[in-house]
Design a protein around this nucleic acid. Sequence first.
RNA 1: GCCCGUGUGGUGUAGCGGUUAUCAUGAGGCGUUGUCGAUGCCUCGACCCGGGUUCGAUUCCCGGCACGGGCGCCA
Length: 469
Amino acid sequence: MASDTVWHPTSFRTHTLGQIQSDGESLVGSEVTICGYMEANRGKGKICFMDIRDGTGRVQIFLKQGGVSDEQLEMAQGLSRESTVQIVGEVAQKRPPKVAEGEPTPPPTYEVVASIFTVLTEAATPLPLGVTDTVSIGLDTRLDNRFLDLRRAHVNAMFTLRSKVLQYGRDHLITEGFKEINSPKIIASASEGGTNLFPMMYFDTPAFLSQSPQLYKQLTILGGMERVFEIGPAFRAENHDTYRHLNEFISFDIEGAWMNDDDVMCVQERMIHHIWSQVAEHDQDQIEIINHYREGQGDEPITVEVPSLPFPRIEYCDAIKMIQDAGEEISWGDDIDSSHCDIIAAKYPGFHFLPRWPMEMKPFYIHHIPGDVGATGEQLSRGFDLNYGRDEMTSGGQREHNVDVLEQNLRNKGLDPADFSFYTDGFRYGAPPHAGWGLGVARLLMVLTGSRNVRETVLFPRDRSRVTP
RNA sequence: GCCCGUGUGGUGUAGCGGUUAUCAUGAGGCGUUGUCGAUGCCUCGACCCGGGUUCGAUUCCCGGCACGGGCGCCA
C-alpha cells in the first residue's frame, strides 16, 4: 500500500486492513469497523479465527463465545471462503505464534476482536478456482474466472504494478514537456495499408476500429502541441495466436516536434529507466508478493534491475550481418523474425534499439534522408524498433514532414494519396520535423513481472478465440 | 492458416483394453483447539462430445470441439 495514500473512512468501514497492520500499535484498544473477503476460518465450538483480506492487506479476526452472539459465532464458523463480511471490534495485539527453539520472536502483529459480525454476501461453493490454494491453475480457467483469479495475491500485485508503470511513465513524460491526449478509436479509413482492421458500421457509414493513434498524434503535432503522448487501445484483426500477441492492446504512444529518431529513442530509454528506478525504489513489496508465488511454483525470483543508459543500438545492417555470421540464411531487406532475434538477444539480452531499417520495409509516414544508404546501396529509413531479448516492445521513428515526399511514399506503397487527404492536408501549411514511437504496455509488463504470456498482464485479454468475459 | 501435443472430481494431476481410477487441493460432517499452511477421524466429488474396432473402450482408431506449445502473419 502506498504510504502517501489517504484512505478516508466510508459508510462501510472506518479503517482499511492495511491501516490496522501498519498502525496497529496506536490503534490497540480502539473500536474499528472493517470489511473484507473471508480467506480462511479456523476453529469450532467456543472460538473462531478468521483471516480476512481487502485491497490493502490481511487481518485476523478473533471471535469468541460471549464476544459476539452465539448466532453470529455459528455463522462465522460455517461461512464459505471468499464470502464478504463486516466486523465491528477492538484492535488488539496478537499472541505471538509458537516458534521453534532459538528462532527469533516475530515482530508484533495486530488482530481485531469482534463484537459484531455481519455477513454481507455468502460465496457459493465450491469456488471455480482456489484463491489461496497452492495448486496451479490453467490460464484458460483463470481467464474464465478473472474476478476470482484477480483476488490471488500475485495476480493482484501484477496489476498493481501495471498501474504503477503507467503512472511512472506518465510522470516522466510530463516532466519532459509532453501533454496527454486522446485520439478517436472509430476511424473512417486505414491508418495505412497492411494490418487488418476490424470493420464496423458508424450509423450508415462503414468505419473501422483504430489500429494506431499514429496519424492523429501527428496531426496534433502539426497543430502546435509540441510534445504529446497517449495511452490507449489499438485493435488489430490479425490471425496471430502467440504468447505475445493480442487483438486489442494498450499502446503507449508519444510524438514530439523538432525531434528525430535519435531524440525519441533517448526519450524512451530515459522513460524506461525512470519506470524501472521507481519500481525498484517504491514497489519491492509487490515484487516480493510475486516472488513468493514464484517460489511456490519452483520459478526463479524476478529482480528489478535498472537498465544502464544508453541502451545498445544495433543498426539494421549490423543486425543482418550478426545473423549471417551465426550461419542463418538472411539477406538485406528481409524481416528479422523471432528466431533471428534470439541470435541478437544472445549478445544483447536486455533492452536494445534496432535503428535504420530499410525504407521499403517501413510505412509511408517514416522519414528517410535521400542518399542515406545501407551496405548494399539501398535506401535506409529513420525507423527503429526497441527489443527486449527476442521480443519487440516498440516501433518508432522520425516522420516524413514534407508533403510531396509523403505523397510519393504513399504511391510507392500502392496507396492513393487522395484517400489520406485528411492527413496529408495537415502538412501543407508548415510542418515541423517530428518523431515518435508506440510501446506495447503489456509486453513491457511481461519483462518487468517475468510473465511468459501477455494474457497474464492484461485484465480481460482479447485474442482470436476469446471475447468474453 | 499450418505443424505438434493435450483433454480424468470444483481446481491441478497419476494411471490403465477388464481397477473399488492415484495423489494434492477443495467441499460436507463430527471432535479437539489462542489458532495462524489449524488439527484428528469420517464422508463427497471425475475419465470432453460423436462414431468405429472389441466379449468389453476412460485407455486403441476416425471425426468434432476445447485448450496448450511452435511457426507464419503482425506499424
